[in-house]
């Protein structure tokens, strides 16, 4: 007990008693901030769900930026001056680039063209040289040039150094065609090359005539090729009824060819000529329109020779009998006409 007392005394000596505190002086407890409840508000929750809906998500992610960009652009472009500035600037930029030295065309070179075609080509160029190569549309130019009859094919190319080069293939005239409107030069395909004023301009070319002859130039050329032995006597080919050919020779002779397969028929006529010298005789027309039954029309002299040999009266160029007595001639003429018609 005494020990305890001693201890207490020692304690009281070491630690001074706590100072008396006024009642109410105790510091108030710090006001605790109310803890916010976790979890979203109703609005946040709904917005979150909306955001998770694919449609709205896409709308917000793509649609909204697009709308904004469109709105800003539209607002900016709504001013007339700005629009003009923008288009002017773009046009100037394009012009600036197009008119650079590297794109300029200064010269035109034409190969394979006759002087007349050369002049025509230069006149057809839509721009005046020097010009920018952007202004020359080569494809359109080519199509325009190939519409010329004299030109079969043309190739345009812009070569380095600012040269517009044109390689021209002209149509080669192969035949002359006489028709109701004049005289044309045709190439081997029957395409018109040029018009000429007279046959004398191109004596070297064969002549065809008649409506629709141009569409069968190939056949005509083959026939002329096949007419080798009689070529010096050939005056030309005539299209009859837009259907078949007549070979016209000098001395008024004519070979009428069939519609179908005219070439073998011509060869047959030539073979007959070779055998019997048919064309050297007085034959006006060799009619091969029916290939199985060739028909000859003889000249007046030959007819009269035959008639004399048969003891018949002779006939004149009109087919009238020449008779010492007039009446007899009349009846003979009538009989002759009836025989022809039959």
């Amino acid at each position: 007990m005494s020990g305890l007392k001693h201890l207490t005394a020692a304690f009281s000596a070491a630690a001074p008693p706590a100072p008396a505190r006024r009642p109410g002086a105790r510091p108030p407890p710090a006001a605790r901030t109310a803890r916010r409840e976790p979890g979203p508000s109703r609005l946040a929750y709904r917005l979150n769900r909306l955001w998770l809906t694919p449609f709205y998500r896409r709308l917000l992610r793509i649609g909204l930026p697009l709308l904004l960009v469109a709105a800003v652009t539209g607002l900016w472009l709504s001013d007339e001056t700005r629009r003009a500035n923008l288009t002017g600037g773009v046009a100037a930029l394009v012009e600036n680039i197009q008119s650079r030295e590297a794109f300029m065309v200064r010269k035109m070179e034409i190969e394979g063209a006759s002087p007349a075609v050369d002049r025509a080509l230069r006149a057809m160029l839509p721009v005046n040289l020097p010009a920018s190569s952007f202004d020359i549309e080569l494809r359109d130019l080519r199509q325009a040039v190939e519409r010329l009859d004299a030109i079969e094919k043309v190739e345009f190319r812009i070569r380095p150094g600012g040269i517009l080069s044109a390689v021209v293939v002209e149509r080669e005239p192969a035949i002359l065609w006489r028709h109701a409107r004049g005289l044309d030069l045709l190439d081997a395909q029957g395409h018109r090359v040029a018009s000429v004023t007279s046959r004398e301009v191109r004596r070297d070319l064969p002549l065809i005539a008649g409506e629709g002859a141009a569409r069968h130039t190939g056949e005509a050329l083959a026939l002329i090729d096949a007419a080798g032995p009689i070529l010096p006597r050939l005056r030309g080919l005539e299209r009859v009824g837009e259907r078949r050919w007549d070979v016209v020779l000098d001395r008024g002779q004519r070979i009428m060819l069939p519609t179908e397969r005219p070439l073998p028929a011509l060869r047959r006529a030539l073979a007959m000529d070779r055998e019997d010298a048919l064309l050297a005789r007085d034959v006006t027309v060799i009619d091969l329109r029916d290939p199985s039954r060739p028909v000859l029309r003889m000249g007046l002299a030959a007819q009269n020779t035959l008639r004399r040999a048969a003891g018949l009266p002779e006939i004149d160029a009109d087919g009238n009998l020449i008779e010492p007595e007039e009446g007899g001639a009349k009846t003979a003429a009538a009989g002759n006409a009836a025989r022809r018609g039959g």
Binding site: G39, P40, A44, Y45, R49, L52
Partner: peptide
């Protein structure tokens, strides 16, 4: 109201992780 709040919290959390509504 409180339960609803908690349910919203849980559903939103799960939705967020799932990435779907």
């Amino acid at each position: 109201a409180e339960t609803e709040h908690c349910v919203r919290h849980a559903v939103q959390g799960a939705q967020k992780q799932a990435g779907v509504r």
